[in-house]
């Protein structure tokens, strides 16, 4: 089953349906770094994931990813707590593709709606997830491991082990 992508269709749809995104990297002395992303794309063959982040918010994270390729990616839907973590070792930074801006805008709207349904005043998630698209950076990697991270007894289990 080595040929089967780690991400199935359902998970690809979940990740691209508007989830809260975080990206972690590590520096040369294994000091971790962390930034909130603004959206993500899963490639058509589901073998690549691209996280979008705002350059000004990244600190040293982009340089670290360019240097060693190590990445942890977390997508979470606040209202259900469903959380998935993906790991990769080949992450690289690049420019977004045409169409990414619209994709991210749709995801942002869906996530704002999810947060508003939980009682957050709309202005709060809009500001939290807002930013200037002109500084968006695409971080693309091949997921080499995936984990369920929804809080509970199953947290940390590798994805694919039947729950």
């Amino acid at each position: 089953m080595a040929d089967k992508p780690l991400i199935d269709e359902e998970l690809a749809a979940f990740l691209q349906g508007g989830v809260s995104v975080h990206v972690a990297s590590r520096g040369p002395t294994n000091v971790p770094n962390l930034v909130r992303g603004i959206g993500c794309r899963v490639s058509a063959d589901r073998r690549q994931v691209t996280a979008f982040v705002l350059a000004s918010q990244c600190g040293a994270l982009l340089a670290e990813i360019a240097m060693n390729g190590a990445i942890a990616f977390v997508g979470s839907l606040p209202s259900t707590h469903r959380t998935v973590q993906l790991k990769g070792t080949d992450a690289r930074t690049g420019a977004p593709l045409p169409g990414d801006e619209a994709l991210v805008a749709r995801q942002r709207a869906a996530l704002v709606e999810d947060l508003v349904s939980m009682g957050y005043p709309p202005g709060m998630p809009r500001a939290l997830l807002g930013g200037d698209w002109s500084e968006a950076v695409a971080i693309t990697f091949t997921p080499s491991a995936a984990f369920v991270q929804t809080p509970g007894p199953g947290a940390g289990a590798p994805l694919g082990g039947k729950r």
Binding site: V23, R26, P32, N33, L34, V74, S76, Q85
Partner: peptide
Amino acid sequence: EIPATIATCAPDGTPNCAYLS
């Protein structure tokens, strides 16, 4: 109110990210 997140790093250099309660 907006959950905090934490990144850690395994000795082999693999980063990890998690939500904090």
